[in-house]
Computed example of a mutant assay.
Amino acid sequence: MNGIEIISTGYAKIEKTLDNAQLEKMVETSNEWILSRTGIQRRHISSRSSALLAIEAAKKATQNQDLSKLSLIIVATMTPENKTPSNACLVQKALDLNEQAMICFDINAACSGYVYALKVAQSLLQEGQYGLIIGSEQLSSIIDYQDRNTCILFGDGAAATLIQKNNNIFYSYLDSAGNREVLYANDYLKMKGQEVFKFAIQTIPQSIDHVLNQAKMTLEEIDYVVCHQANERIIKHVYKKYQCPQEKFYMNLQEYGNTSAASIPLALAEMNEKGILKKGMKIILVGFGGGLTWGALLMEW
């Protein structure tokens, strides 16, 4: 098998939060309305760029690790600090690895970014080599806080995973369909919520089924499913469809909101910190978002 192992995780700490009570004073909404439709209680707001958040997460994930075999850094982001250099190159510099042979680049697949980045890393790394895969977003920089369709949903975040190429199981399914009407960002992020919901509840089960079929496994054999943390209603719809316990679908969106490419690695870092993930566990990661993009990975912890 041509797989990867997640060696360590780390995430950026963002102290400032924006809760639903604060949003009530900014736009026409209410705590009850937001909770009933999204499950989100608060989101974290950073004054630091996505590059600086990525650097903090990377330093935490690589603490006490031998980086001599690190040959790849990928940052998944739709809010890079610069058009160039990439956030990934800035992470390399911050880790004092400019003299080490390294491939560094950013990838933009919106909320599917981390899943896409892990698959790209699995394809590029040779056995035994290490990669640093980061999801980092400063979405507050592209949110119109007068637009209640978006400002209630999105927050900032960054998390990093240090991975190694090995022989663990690894199955992947990625797909896309070009669309600039449903979800897009220029100066501000705009989205059509109902259409995104329909897209998500179709593509999440499709992605899960693809990787389960490849692995010849059932969902009962999977320990955890970590979906992109977009909306509680979306994730609830999926686990009810599969008639499985909600505990199998990890959720932390109530604390962070939708952090785009950071959401899946942030969930993994939190689960790892809490001791939830044990070696040998089978997990499925599912991303879906702008592009439109979607996909899933089935891997071993």
Results as ranks from 00 to 15, higher is better:
Ser50Ile: 06
Glu81Met: 06
Ala76Pro: 12
Asp156Glu: 13
Gly290Ser: 15
Tyr239Arg: 01
Glu232Leu: 11
Glu181Phe: 11
Leu297Gln: 07
Leu285Ala: 08
Ala185Cys: 14
Gln138Leu: 12
Glu181Lys: 12
Leu125Ala: 09
Gly290Lys: 07
Gly155Cys: 09
Ile169Glu: 02
Glu181Asp: 15
Asp223Glu: 11
Ala51Ile: 05
Trp294Met: 03
Asp106Ser: 04
Gly295Ile: 03
Thr38Pro: 00
Leu298Ile: 08
Ile152His: 02
Lys59Leu: 09
Lys69Asp: 14
Gly257Asn: 05
Asn167Trp: 01
Ser46Glu: 00
Val226Pro: 02
Trp33Asn: 01
Ala261Lys: 03
Ala57Ser: 05
Tyr224Asn: 03
Ser140Arg: 11
Gln214Leu: 09
Ala61Gly: 03
Ala185Trp: 04
Glu56Pro: 01
Ser49Gln: 06
Phe197Gln: 06
Ala54Lys: 05
Asn2Trp: 04
Ser30Asn: 04
Ile7Gln: 00
Gln146Trp: 08
Lys59Glu: 11
Gln243Glu: 12
Asn252Trp: 01
Gln194Leu: 14
Ile55Cys: 02
Ala261Gln: 05
Ala110Glu: 06
Tyr224Thr: 00
Val226Asn: 03
Glu137His: 13
Ile7Leu: 06
Lys25Trp: 04
Asn98Cys: 14
Ile55Arg: 00
Phe288Trp: 13
Ile201Ser: 01
Cys111Met: 09
Met271Ile: 13
Ser136Gly: 12
Leu277Arg: 07
Thr29Lys: 01
Lys241Thr: 13
Leu292Pro: 10
Lys93Tyr: 10
Arg37Asn: 01
Asp209Ala: 08
Ser136Phe: 07
Leu174Ala: 05
Gly287Met: 12
Gln246Trp: 06
Tyr250Val: 02
Ile7Lys: 01
Asn258Ala: 10
Ser36Asp: 13
Asn258Arg: 09
Ser49Thr: 15
Glu247Gln: 13
Lys274Gly: 06
Asp66Thr: 02
Lys274Leu: 15
Gly135Met: 09
Met251Leu: 03
Ala269Glu: 12
Gln65Ser: 09
Ala121His: 09
Lys69Trp: 00
Val91Arg: 01
Ala117His: 07
Val225Arg: 06
Cys89Ser: 07
Ala296Phe: 00
Tyr256His: 14
Ser30Phe: 02
Gln229Met: 05
Val226Glu: 04
Asp66Tyr: 02
Leu67Ile: 10
Gly128Trp: 09
Lys16His: 14
Ile133Met: 07
Gly287Ile: 14
Leu212Met: 06
Ile234Gly: 01
Leu298Asn: 00
Tyr239Pro: 00
Glu181His: 12
Thr259His: 00
Gly131Cys: 11
Glu195Met: 08
Asn149Leu: 05
Thr218Asp: 11
Ala110Asn: 06
Ile103Trp: 12
Glu24His: 06
Thr161Ile: 10
Gln229Trp: 09
Val238Phe: 05
Arg148Thr: 08
Leu253Ile: 08
Val182Ser: 05
Leu18Pro: 12
Gln206Phe: 04
Gln254Cys: 03
Asn213Cys: 04
Lys190Asn: 15
Ser263Arg: 05
Ser8Phe: 00
Tyr116Lys: 05
Ile14Leu: 14
Ala117Ile: 14
Glu300Val: 04
